[in-house]
């Protein structure tokens, strides 16, 4: 039984596949989307508790995914994980309701810690 539902969104397929494998070793069963459009389609079918989202992707970018995700399902907690983060992007993401903004590459322990905090926040918001 997975700890909670996680969706990883990143167009760097090798990165996201490896990260998913490492999270699986830590008791998660993350779903993976390789584009913003794919992420939005997945949200409609199976809403995650926590989304780990890249910002700069071809097609629909991370900020647009964040905006749509928070609009359609405000309880989702979104963690931005990007190598493209300028301070301006971080401010925009936080304004749109991102739970946290992390820079790539991130230590797996730090990421798992933030994901757990995000899930706690998600549960607190619900109750």
């Amino acid at each position: 039984m997975a700890k909670f539902k996680v969706l990883l969104v990143d167009d760097e397929a090798e990165f996201v596949a490896t990260l998913a494998e490492r999270l699986a070793m830590r008791g998660f069963a993350p779903e993976v989307a390789f584009s913003g459009e794919e992420a939005i389609a997945l949200l409609a079918r199976n809403t995650p508790d926590v989304m780990v989202l890249d910002l700069k992707m071809p097609g629909m970018d991370g900020l647009e995914v964040l905006r749509r995700a928070k609009k359609s399902c405000p309880r989702i907690q979104v963690i931005i994980l990007t190598g493209h983060g300028s301070e301006r992007d971080e401010e925009a993401a936080r304004r749109l309701g991102a739970f946290e903004h992390l820079n790539k590459p991130v230590d797996i322990k730090e990421l798992v810690g933030v994901m757990e905090q995000a899930f706690d926040h998600c549960r607190t918001t619900e109750s």
Binding site: E12, E14, F15, T18, L19, E21, R22, M25, K56, G83, H84, N103, K104, P105, V106, I108
Partner: peptide, 19 residues
């Protein structure tokens, strides 16, 4: 930015090998 993506893939791959 692209270099950081490359380094992130290397870091995750090494992390997986350590795991």
């Amino acid at each position: 930015h692209e270099m950081k993506n490359v380094l992130a893939i290397i870091k995750e791959s090494v992390g997986l090998m350590e795991d």
